[in-house]
Design a protein around this nucleic acid. Structure first.
Lengths: 147, 147
DNA sequence: CAATCTGTTGACGTTAACGTAAGCACTCGG
DNA sequence: CCGAGTGCTTACGTTAACGTCAACAGATTG
């Protein structure tokens, strides 16, 4: 079963028209595969416009992609990232309830990130101790060799 | 093809003999499944002794398991965690080269963790901004309702 | 006009990290 | 002696996050 073919077009405007980017540009810029970018789209994390069948990304899309990758670097699942992404974006003229809800979710998210941060700090601390132990051993060795 | 059967034994000493723990104790203590613990063993992250076919964990094993889970909480893969775990443990009487190598790896690991930490801090910062924007909107709403 | 480039959509493969299930082995309490 | 409890192993299933591949369509270029 083949989907009906649209007619794609390069879109790849080096720096001309209206601040739109092709998928390959984004891929190279962030060092990821085209497949990954499309995958994020499938998962609803990105929603580029279509220009004659080709994906066209705006600055805003680029920012989102950046957030996605940052999320991954931090060890979040795509689901969690989607969660966070939804906190950005136009909550234009949101009603009071919406605002409360959003702020609540942001607080929750920040708390979780804080926990992670503390875990990392703990690991850094422990590794630092191990390191200084090794440093001591190293110094001892040197004393044996030189003195 | 069946492996030859050993004879397992509870080992489950509540707090008596020699500071050994059964697999279920560990599982409950850390809130994970037996399967997961065995899985970590398969991956070489744990290596409990066997007492009559049953796994017997020491305090040291418990600490390692803690490190594993902390690593996961921080978003590391089991491979990365194994990497880090190898930095602990007896480098007893290590030779100079070994020490240099280990310290180098610790430094590398710490640098990487530092990067993650910075990513998280960045996200926290951005979320903080979004939050304060929403707070402003919230205040505006209240002014409309009350005054 | 044919080759090449860029892009699109399935469909299937892969790796990591387990979960689930089945079947067997000891031990212990009644 | 029998059933429940605990543990072991092997084998297969599952989810996430892509990678790989095939087949095709416009555009561009020699």
């Amino acid at each position: 079963m083949n989907a009906p073919r649209r007619k794609p077009v390069p879109v790849t405007a080096p720096s001309s028209d209206d601040e739109l980017y092709g998928i390959t540009e984004l891929a190279k810029e962030y060092g990821i595969s085209l497949r990954a970018i499309r995958f994020y789209e499938d998962k609803g994390l990105l929603a580029p416009r279509r220009i004659n069948g080709g994906r066209a990304y705006t600055r805003r899309d680029r920012v989102r992609l950046g957030l996605i990758l940052r999320g991954k670097a931090v060890g979040m699942s795509l689901a969690e990232i989607e969660h966070i992404l939804s906190l950005y974006g136009d909550h234009g003229e949101g009603h009071a309830q919406q605002l409360d809800y959003l702020i609540g979710r942001i607080d929750a998210t920040m708390t979780e990130l804080d926990t992670r941060l503390r875990h990392i700090e703990a690991m850094l601390g422990e590794l630092g101790e191990v390191r200084s132990q090794l440093k001591k051993a190293q110094a001892a060795q040197r004393r044996l060799r030189k003195g």
